[in-house]
Design a protein around this nucleic acid. Sequence first.
DNA 1: TTGTAGGCGTTATCAA
DNA 2: TTGATAACGCCTACAA
Lengths: 344, 344
Amino acid sequence: MTDDTPARRRKAATIRDVAQAAGVSTATVSKFINGGQRFTREVEERVTTAVRELGYSSNPMARGMITGQTGNVGIVILDICNPHFTSLVKGSSRVAERAGLNLLFTDTAEGHTPELTMLQALSRRVDGIIVSARLSEAAIEWLKHSGLPVIYYGGQQPDPACYSVGVDNRAAAQMLGRHLRDLGHRRISYVGFSGARWSSERWKGLQDAFDGSDGVLRLFDVESAVADEGERIASSVLLCAEPPDAVVTYNDLVALGLLGQAQLLGLRVPDDVSIAGFDNIIYGRYASPALTTVDTASELTGETAMQRLIERIRGDAAVSGGGHETLASRVIARGSTARRAPGR
Amino acid sequence: MTDDTPARRRKAATIRDVAQAAGVSTATVSKFINGGQRFTREVEERVTTAVRELGYSSNPMARGMITGQTGNVGIVILDICNPHFTSLVKGSSRVAERAGLNLLFTDTAEGHTPELTMLQALSRRVDGIIVSARLSEAAIEWLKHSGLPVIYYGGQQPDPACYSVGVDNRAAAQMLGRHLRDLGHRRISYVGFSGARWSSERWKGLQDAFDGSDGVLRLFDVESAVADEGERIASSVLLCAEPPDAVVTYNDLVALGLLGQAQLLGLRVPDDVSIAGFDNIIYGRYASPALTTVDTASELTGETAMQRLIERIRGDAAVSGGGHETLASRVIARGSTARRAPGR
DNA sequence: TTGTAGGCGTTATCAA
DNA sequence: TTGATAACGCCTACAA
């Protein structure tokens, strides 16, 4: 049995239907809906009834046309499958929901649409937007020029008029480096991801940590920050002439891949080599050994970014002038890092 | 240095501005923008220029008011932090982007807003919606009544007029059960999640697999399908009087938690007990031993659901009448399941 | 406290 | 091929 007609969307009741049913003007209904005014008990009751019976709710597009607000906020994510970004979305989503805003989600990893085109399309459908600080220069420039409220997540925007939220990557890496140094490690390899601006910050932080020591740091690079790449680069990093005591990777995904592959290559972690990443994704706990990492406040980043965005949209006076909000990070030491074996 | 004014959004050029600049009527510009008509070279050139110089793009809300289309599609996710759903979103997102549709994302796990209220608000902002088959009866009823194009993911909707997409959970579980049976396992425990309708399908599938054998199946239940719960229930499942040869869990997250805890309790996996889950989340590969699982076509589910939704929105004739689309699933055997030890 | 009327930016209809 | 004009549903002065 099939439908006689393709399910057609029933036309919703309009404010006029309500006005008529309640025997008042549309203006009265509008004011009633949007609150902030008092009415006769009589009118109030009739309107309430009419709204309920007709199941009325105002048309967001019609309202938007005149208020200039869409009721939506946008978020542009590099790769939703990275748990770091997943948590970020979770945090943003929660805050948006509380504020009664809808979240327009975009994943750019596919990159079918050029970044700029995508932003231009999105910008007409949202009141503000949260984007990665890794956006292209052209896109950032266009955003600035557009006047759309924007919050950047991840790194800090050089332009002081921009708002951004994230951890201090250099300081975070320095903490991790210090941890490794305290464990007696001297030969450190960093598997960076030059596609992210702040990978170099993390590299600098590591260097800071070993400043004035006899530590030897070496730099590698992956083409994308995923587990596969960690697997791919494992042998280059681990089986070289003078192998490292410890390896730090750009993020936990790369670390997970590296960790798995290291074991397949016959290395014992952490006895032969310590491994650590960034982001504190939950799955690091379920690797074996559990992965040492640096928490980069993923969910809090999302929450904070959304809060700042909403403030900007609402135009709260206190929050003018841009600036970077630094979130606290912390090292989470687990089984994948340990004191360097004496004989090693 | 602060801004003199709160960044004000510059008012975008309207179709009238373009018409004036090009010396034509707004109707002409509209037709030109929306294509599908031919113009004098002269007009075409003037309009093109005006559009470019003014950086014009049409106002989606104004357009939506008259076309009745929003250009948005909604997706309602139970918990974006579950990689299964993350992949689903990824698939949907890609297809939506290709079709030029924006994705309105909602995560219900927080549940601040009642399901029905959330759907009602969302329904006015989208042309169609993808939701979990785990939605409440009331919500499903309301959706049917609304006439909004809906695709359910996960389980099959009983109502044949509804569209749904997902794997055959019973058959999938039967395959996994068969795998375990072939490995010589006889005492099987299933850690289900009664919060999901299709957990019982999986339970039935397992029973099917051991039908007519001397297998003994036992049922447990978690309150939420996350790794923590897998950890929590581990001792109850594994340390009982007659411990199981193998444990199947509702999904990989629970399995991961259970796996980690099993090892902390001193059990060797898979020597002492085999463990398997559902969904084939990527992190199962990085557990140790790697997790045996059943692939539930997460990303394909998202893609397919979005394709069907778009067909429904566009009103393609061929796709009337509803129905369930079954996606193929497959067992992915890894290290966490192995032949039952002889002496066990 | 309530109503009237104008306009938001666009598309669709119909006439030129 | 092009243009005038009427909606679309709502909000907001302003008037009553």
